[in-house]
Design a protein around this nucleic acid. Structure first.
Lengths: 208, 208
DNA sequence: GAGTATAACAGACATTTGTCTGGTATATTC
DNA sequence: GAATATACCAGACAAATGTCTGTTATACTC
């Protein structure tokens, strides 16, 4: 293998490893060696060790395939809930429609998160359309935040307003919908919407 | 280790491995063994082999830490472009602001995808707000699709309408904005918006 | 030219990790 | 009760993988 200008091969190795890691598949030293046509494992190890020292990679010594991207946010499994309404909340978490990988800060409690598909057009004014997926964190919501609430056995996305004396208002962002003022015991705030995802397909092309 | 009811331990092992895999970290047999307090590696191997036969896990024999989730959509690295405007497009791809893992079908060409942060309020009617991140696939757009276009050296998100004779219309979805009818040589359609992501609130979110 | 840093190689070595063969115990089924 | 299936254990083994030590060559600096 001919000698290359300083840093050039290292950059190519970094990109190769990075792309493999983003696919969830950490390569072994020999796999990297073979990909670049090196003849010595040590060549790869030297480059990777340098990349770790530069802070561009992380690793655990003496472990197979342990290189990681320090800058890459870690994905955590968040259950996509189907019918929260009928059963209890915990049952819904135990039988998710699917799992969605979501970036969550390490300081948060993973079990506080879930995802929900949006029904209805009541939040169009906030850019939340039917069919969107919202990611929700359970916990005490503040006034003004967009929340998921369980009202009359149905999960609904609205903006929360807390009035004096603990009066709860759930405000839609669509003039065609009414503000909900449920009595405290008929309404349970499930959590705060922290992220929204939408896949654009062919379904709603040309919507007015 | 006491004997457990059939299937129960296997379920727990599956969940443990699944969660580790979603964090991008495939456990070794001995790591699983230690986590559950087994004394024999073979116990774990038997369970995992069964899970593979049930189709709940995938693996490559004779490879370290090679268990995978077959159901998990594969995430691919998509560059987040900063300033497309100034420089050329290829330069922007080479120097991304960050990398965003995106679910992409295997039939697509990974290098056709990029992500862009939305500026301006011209697409509020389509539920696309400033600050949102759109994921874009390069390629020939069809009339009616939401596209990213390069007009007067600035990337902009609009709905595309192709009129007779190849007339290009870029329609905002906000009554306060005008329809753009750029001459063909002053407008380059970069691609079609296929996904949208929005982070709400103060939750931490890392950018690599 | 001497010194130094970097790229790449060579090959032995140690550890991690997966594989295999056989065994014990507890249910369930016929 | 015999046969069968499953959960778990024990320990040897082999393959994959990371580690180490030493070497050669090229480029740059003083």
């Amino acid at each position: 293998m001919p000698r290359t200008p300083p840093g050039q091969t290292r950059e190519r190795i970094f990109r190769f490893v990075r792309d493999r890691l983003l696919r969830g598949d950490s390569p072994s030293l020999r796999e990297v060696r073979d990909h670049f046509g090196f003849r010595a494992v040590e060549t790869v190890r030297a480059h990777l060790t340098a990349l770790v020292e530069e802070g561009r990679l992380d690793r655990e010594p003496g472990r197979a395939r342990s290189y990681r991207l320090p800058s890459l946010p870690r994905f955590h499994p968040v259950p996509i809930l189907g019918e929260v309404a009928a059963g209890g909340f915990e049952e819904a978490v135990e039988n998710p429609e699917g799992i969605l990988p979501v970036e969550i800060s390490d300081s948060r409690d993973l079990s506080d998160f879930f995802a929900l598909r949006v029904r209805g057009e009541s939040m169009i004014g906030a850019g939340i359309l039917p069919g969107d997926t919202v990611i929700v964190e359970r916990g005490e919501p503040r006034s003004g935040q967009i929340v998921v609430a369980l009202v009359e056995n149905e999960a609904t996305v609205k903006r929360l307003h807390l009035g004096p004396g603990g009066v709860v208002e759930l405000r839609p962002e669509n003039p065609e919908f009414e503000i909900l003022r449920p009595p405290p015991d008929a309404c349970r705030i499930l959590g705060v919407v922290v992220e929204l995802r939408r896949t654009l397909g062919t379904r709603w092309r040309g919507r007015p």
